[in-house]
Structures are given as structure tokens and as C-alpha cells.
Simulated scan of single mutants.
Amino acid sequence: MARLAALAALVLTMAQAPAPKPAADVELWRLDCGGVQVNDLNAFSDTLAYSGQSKRLVASCYLIRHGSDYMLWDTGLPEAVIGQPVSNTDAMSPILTTTIKRQLAQIGVKPEQIGRVGISHYHFDHTGQAAGFPGATLLIGKGDADALSAGKPGTSAEPLKPWFGGGAKIEAIDADKDVFGDGSVTLLNLPGHTPGHHALLVVLKGKGPVLLSGDLAHFRENYDTNGVPPFNTDRAATLASLDRFKKLAGNVKATVILQHEPGDVAKLPAFPASAR
């Protein structure tokens, strides 16, 4: 009798629970946030897999519209890089020719309309233009937020001054995060490259799931062979995150976008067109 009463109570609770919200109209733009001339590709291999090789990478970032809300995912290289010469001798040389704000203006989006800035991790080529959106809530992995707050070696909170010392709203995330509460945009906790590294899953009604990698891997060969850069903060966590990401991509049949791989970024329409 007690079991029946408990079952009846459970059914009643489920019947009274609000129905899941339908996913809002979601749109995804790829933005040009710079590039990197890599003259020593072993910078991304702790097993020296790419001796004598070089590669031109992109530094992509993304605009997401969820209904009437706008979110940036990563913010590329700092505007100060514009006009700097490209080095053919430095291990890595940054390149930037335009800004996020200029691109937003092309599609009629004002900086103050950006309600959230999601950062995959604290490296300068992902945080460079974030400070141009101080009214947004910063979404960042808790491990990264803690490292920035503590001034750990290899970190700098300078590109994120509105949130670290400036009083702007910050949300430090130590797990996955369903950003809008309907499963359409989810930060994925994938540490290893940095302590709080995250990737992003965007579910589009037409194109389907899209996985934006952050810096889980930097280019296809690295991704396919589970390569680990020597500057990652945790090798074992990197490999576990790669395993999770690949299994998730296969299970949901996602389009995988390695954010530094030109061929992957090209899977999305060229700006100002968008994916839906």
C-alpha cells in the first residue's frame, strides 16, 4: 500500500511539473578573430610529432543568437595585433585584420546587445577582445577563474579586467552549463588544456548539433592522434576530455569544429551568412 501511495505521489508530481520549454530559434555565425602562423608545429606536441613542420591556423570565435539574446563564444586576438608584421621565425606569430565589433555592425548587432561572453579558456587568443563587452555576463570555467584570480604563472587577467577587478558580472562554471535552460547551447566541462577549459555544443534546428572545440585540439592531425601540447596543464585530463568529446560527437552526430583548423571552420557559412 505504501508503495502504491509513493507511486501515486510521483505521478502527481510529474503531472504538475512544467512542460519543457521549446527550443528558441538559434542562429550561429562564425567570426574572423584572427590567425596564427605557427613556424614550429612541435609547439603543439609533447611527443615531437611535427618536427620541421609549420602551419597557418585561424583564431575563430562565434556569435550565437538565441531568440532575442546574443552570446559570444571566445573573443579572439586583441585589437592591438592589427597591423603587426607576420614573423617567419617566431614559434608562433599572431595575425589580425578586423575586429568583432566591426563584424557585428555588418549584421546590425550593437555591442550592448551581447548579454553573455563565453570563454573556452584564459589564453590570450581567446580573450583578446572580451573587454569590449563589459555589460555582458562572463561565462568561464571555475578552474580558469581561480587561476586568474590567483595570478598563476602563464595567466593574465588583463584582457578580462571588467570582470576581474572591474565589478562586471561573472559566472564561474565547474561542470557543464545549459546556458538558456532548453538544451540548445551547452558549455561542456573538458579540462586539461587549462584547469577550467570548456567546449560548446550548439543545437541548430536545420544543421543539427555543432561542437565548438575551444582548444581541446588545435588541428585535425592533432585531434585524430590525441596529440597533447606541452603547455597543457594536465595531460591525463586532456586525454579524458578528448575521449568524452569524440564519443559525444559520435553519439549526437555533431558537426565538429576545431576552432583553430581552417578546414573545420569552413564547415560553417562564411560571414555574414549564418548557420541555423
Rank of each mutant, 00 (worst) to 15 (best):
A80Q: 11
P22K: 04
S120H: 04
C33P: 09
A105I: 10
P134G: 05
T255E: 13
D174G: 11
N189S: 09
N88F: 07
Y122P: 03
A136L: 03
L72Q: 00
G135Q: 08
L72F: 04
S54L: 07
S87Y: 08
S120C: 13
G154F: 09
G196Y: 00
P94T: 10
L104A: 06
G76H: 00
T186R: 05
A150L: 07
S120A: 07
L148V: 03
L160N: 04
K207Q: 14
Q106F: 08
N222C: 13
N251A: 15
S87A: 03
A2I: 06
L188Y: 01
N226R: 15
A249F: 06
E158P: 02
I95C: 01
A8R: 13
A5L: 15
E261H: 05
E112C: 13
D40P: 01
P191T: 12
D25L: 12
N42D: 14
S213Y: 00
L12K: 05
D46R: 01
R244T: 12
G115C: 06
A217S: 12
S120Y: 01
T98H: 07
L216T: 12
E158H: 06
K169H: 06
K267R: 07
G192L: 03
L188F: 02
T99D: 02
D174N: 15
A150K: 15
H123F: 12
S241C: 11
I257G: 02
L212H: 10
A145E: 09
F245K: 07
G165T: 06
F180H: 12
A9S: 13
P272T: 05
Y122W: 14
K246W: 04
L212I: 03
Q16I: 08
L63V: 09
F164S: 05
K152S: 09
A6N: 11
S149T: 15
G183L: 10
F44H: 06
S68F: 02
G263E: 03
S149C: 07
L57I: 13
D46Y: 06
K169Q: 13
A172R: 05
A9V: 14
Y62V: 00
I95R: 11
P18I: 04
I119T: 00
A15R: 10
A49E: 13
R244G: 15
I107C: 07
G165P: 05
F245I: 03
Q129Y: 02
A273V: 11
L187K: 01
S87C: 08
Y122Q: 09
A270E: 15
L96P: 04
A15G: 12
G135K: 08
R276N: 14
V265R: 08
P209A: 10
L41C: 10
L48R: 04
T225S: 12
H121C: 11
L139D: 05
P111R: 08
L216F: 03
T89N: 15
K247H: 13
A23R: 07
S45D: 04
G192I: 00
T137A: 05
V117G: 03
P94H: 09
G128W: 01
D69Q: 07
D264T: 08
K142V: 12
F271E: 05
P111T: 00
G227Q: 10
D182R: 04
V210E: 04
D74Y: 05
L41H: 09
A9C: 12
I100T: 04
A249G: 02
T89H: 14
P269R: 01
G206H: 09
L139W: 02
L258D: 02
T127M: 02
P209L: 05
A5H: 13
W29P: 00
S87I: 03
E112Y: 14
D74G: 14
H126A: 14
P85E: 04
